[in-house]
Design a protein around this nucleic acid. Structure first.
Lengths: 156, 156
DNA sequence: TCCAGATATTTTAAGCTTAAAATTTCAGCC
DNA sequence: GGCTGAAATTTTAAGCTTAAAATATCTGGA
């Protein structure tokens, strides 16, 4: 391995650690805000956010693949959101195995409120990034994501 | 709010979601690699990585603040690493409350191996980023981190 | 000395997460 | 109809995570 290759590898590692630190910091702040100010959690917010994108609801399995978490995971979160009447399970006509989870009107209202705050928190936390930075960053991330997609294909 | 301000806020939100997707994807890949190929987990790797930076070991509380996780959390992880003789707890002379966690020589060897693989995984996953991209990205993240630091001061 | 508050750590309770097993239902084929 | 394998979901077991309570020890002052 040439010295150039080695330093590139080390530089990537350092940037990865910084990326992780940045994202963990922001995510921690969001979790704190949700918990302390709104008595909820990020996984709950994520589920509601996914359901808000699909007004007709999502099958449990579609919800878990959309969020990239396990089936069992969403079962537990939807259980609790259902207890609080923020989400409801609707039977799928013609398939007794499946259920559709969807926001109740109470859940929609709750999500709209939370989403507003959420956008504000992110806006503050990413305050230092102007449109040009955002575009550059977005392009960079896009390339990394594309590389990940390629790898998935190789694994499959 | 002007339309420009609104679109900036929305753009920040979109970039945040992309950032999260990227980091979660990479982190998931690292977790899979550690689990499937090396019978360990990311939190364990993180603890060993922190201890590897401090050959004389770290007090439990310093370890948790370094990793930015709770005290109780490291207690459990160090317990298990200790059972496997990868880490040992050393009493602190003059303070019976405190303990220093440090890698055993077995732990050091194990970490060196894992760290090599880890650097390779990151190198592959960030394959698409050349030195120039890394520098730009690093600067961008630095600014976001600095903003977070400012906010912490305001909260304190 | 003794005690009150601070410090270091562990324990506890609750929630999130996963992979794997279990359950229920479906779909196609005989 | 009945069977078999697939599909959708839930349950289970194990581990990670946190905040808060509990424990043990230390420190400084009365």
């Amino acid at each position: 391995m040439t010295s150039d290759t080695e330093s590139l590898s080390k530089a990537r590692l350092r940037v990865w650690l910084k990326l992780l630190k940045t994202v963990n910091g922001i995510e921690g702040e969001i979790r704190r805000n949700l918990r302390d100010g709104h008595r909820t959690t990020l996984p709950r917010f994520d589920v509601m956010s996914a359901l808000a994108r699909f007004p007709d609801g999502l099958k449990m399995s579609d919800l878990s693949s959309f969020l990239k978490v396990s089936n069992g995971n969403v079962t537990g979160i939807v259980d609790k959101l259902t207890e609080e009447e923020l989400v409801q399970r609707v039977p799928v006509p013609g398939d007794k195995r499946a259920q559709i989870a969807r926001l109740t009107s109470k859940g929609e209202a709750e999500f709209e409120t939370l989403a507003g705050y959420h956008e504000g928190w992110i806006d503050t936390l990413l305050d230092t990034l102007a449109m040009e930075d955002l575009e550059t960053l977005s392009d960079t991330l896009e390339r990394v994501l594309a590389q990940g997609t390629e790898k998935e294909r190789a694994d499959a």
